[in-house]
Design a protein around this nucleic acid. Structure first.
Lengths: 339, 339
DNA sequence: TAAAATTACTACATCGTTTGCGTAAATAGT
DNA sequence: ACTATTTACGCAAACGATGTAGTAATTTTA
């Protein structure tokens, strides 16, 4: 029942606590015969070190935190998958925290993590994280952060992203090539870096094609699904409807599908759609959804690998580094001109 | 930079360490004036207790673990969402572990958790978890487990499930009412309880309608997507095809959609489909997918609530309790007779 | 008014590990 | 053979917070 500890092990083995401890950690100070005796007994008694005691003593938690806006989301859950894999390989534990896009919650979570509960934090910030003092304060405590996807430029550390600007260009170019004359961009807030990059790509490509850049074509959506629905419905209801929609995140594309269904609009005849998405059922939708798909699993995996690269060396300072992975464009029915 | 601790706070305040500690915990032994002075200074210095020190001393981790097969899955991510919400409300932290349906990984994870790293475990077992000695062993260590969805009958504790048997009956009945004469059941393994219940409902309803119960209509799928694809393809290729498919989990329905697409089979004309699923895009699929939808968020929430009910009382023993939540049937195009 | 009780604090042992230092005994070096 | 060095272990002090058992000083009670 009760977990066995070093003291009990030592008593049974007739050795001192420190000898047992050192033997278990394979110290050179301990003779081979003793080591084997200790190992065998430890296994027999099912000894595992108390993580709080060793955490306290060594000032290491063997734990990282993942702070993300949500988990019921294909992108983040895949990223977590990658992170968890690397963590297990490194014998680390993964704490998970959800901000639900709430900057106050994000601040509270970081506050909770300041006391060395974790050795490092992997995070994707809130759509509302414009002020980042809570993040630089956090770094000051000596706990490293690695950002993935939704990064914070101002914080010096490693950042894993995808080629959002290029993807923005490619998606827009694709819509233009399929005869779209008036493309709207559905943004998620406008604070965060990925939105700015995706939007830049969109604007740049419009510009390059001498298409008019109308500010009202950039729709600033948010975290409230009903409000987003209303925004998209309004966009598609007036007489000045766009003939193409570039959704910056998956859920806005889904909302658009739902709006089109209600308004009896045909995709892609009435409006063409492309979006950033990791939806596994994209090809089964009606019509199948064209996507820019980020390598979510690898993003998480890479972020974790970078973190462990520094944790292994006991470095709490991670210098600026931008790792950019490539997204892939999957053209399906929703964005294609029907010939 | 360095985190401030009790000793430093005490020195600055010219008080003893224990006085400061007690003041912070609002002990009656400390005078009001002193309390205020301490609180103010603690806030000013941004003091937060070291979780390892207090964890060690009080033998409490303020952490629970969630052990699930996967996270890139709508059901589990919603459940995690519910769990995390309740954990945050209770000032608890959430560790996450993925088994990837691997029983050996599950055993290893439980082994890792035995040493009081967590105060409790919420879990959904692997599809291969038939032998549960690693779980009863774990319980013996004095750490409570609460099961949700994929439960372990033999372990005495609280179990949160949905009315899978009834849902199995309803789904099957629905297919029969829509003229299916030969319904296949896609199972995920056959060890775990939910599969047995869903299958029982399926078999029972066939029986009630005097339909032949062919053993080869129960397809035992697994964790290998390609293998599942082959199994479903074989099922739908021969001359003795079923005209209805009841998929026990979401991913098997998606596989079935993909197979039908390859085989150029029309859903629901050639074969009707219904499945357990929390897919948010079910209604946008082509054709829209009929589902039995479990209240995943509430299942997670409930599991966490039950856990905290006992943790609050410092009870490590949770008596048997079966909490059954209701799933809802969403009839869409994939399962309906076209008139 | 002496004894009892309360108040407001401090000292210290403790949780389980880790690790620097000390020390006998065994081995090596000259 | 006598001093170095190495080997193999034990002692004890941390790590930071908690809580029991004190202890003066003050207040209450009989």
């Amino acid at each position: 029942m009760a977990a066995v500890n070093l003291k009990q092990l030592a008593k049974i083995l007739n050795l001192s606590i420190s000898t047992v401890s050192k033997a278990l950690r394979d110290s050179h100070e301990i003779g081979d015969a003793t080591k084997e005796r200790v190992l065998a007994k430890a296994k027999e008694m099912d000894y595992t070190p108390n993580p709080f005691a060793s955490g306290l003593r060594r000032n290491k938690s063997k734990t990282i935190a993942v702070v993300v806006p949500e988990v019921a989301n294909n992108y983040f859950s895949l990223a977590i998958n990658g992170i968890e894999r690397i963590a297990q390989e490194n014998d680390y534990h993964v704490l998970i925290y959800l901000t639900h896009e709430d900057i106050e919650k994000e601040k509270g979570i970081m506050k909770h993590l300041e006391n060395k509960r974790v050795d490092g934090v992997l995070m994707s910030v809130t759509m509302n994280t414009s002020n980042q003092t809570h993040l630089s304060d956090f770094q000051q405590k000596g706990i490293p952060i690695v950002f993935f996807d939704r990064i914070c430029h101002e914080i010096e550390t490693a950042k894993i992203t995808t080629d959002d600007y290029i993807s923005g260009i490619n998606a827009t170019k694709h819509l233009i090539e399929n005869n779209c004359k008036d493309i709207a961009f559905l943004s998620l807030g406008d604070e965060i870096s990925i939105m700015q990059k995706r939007k830049s790509g969109y604007l740049e490509e419009l510009h390059k094609n001498n298409m008019e850049v109308k500010p009202e074509r950039v729709i600033k959506c948010g975290n409230d699904d009903e409000h987003n629905y209303a925004l998209v419905k309004k966009l598609l209801t007036g007489k000045n409807k766009p003939d193409g929609i570039f959704a910056s995140v998956e859920k806005l594309a889904i909302t658009t599908y739902q709006v089109c269904r209600e308004l009896n609009m045909n995709i892609p005849n009435d409006v063409k759609i492309i979006c950033f998405s990791n939806l596994e059922t994209a090809s089964l939708l009606s019509p199948s959804l064209s996507t820019i798909t980020q390598p979510a699993y690898n993003i998480g995996k890479t972020a974790a690998e970078v973190m462990f690269k520094y944790l292994d060396k006991n470095k709490t300072y991670i210098p600026n580094e931008n790792i950019v992975l490539q997204s892939t464009l999957h053209i399906r029915e929703s964005s294609q001109q029907i010939v």
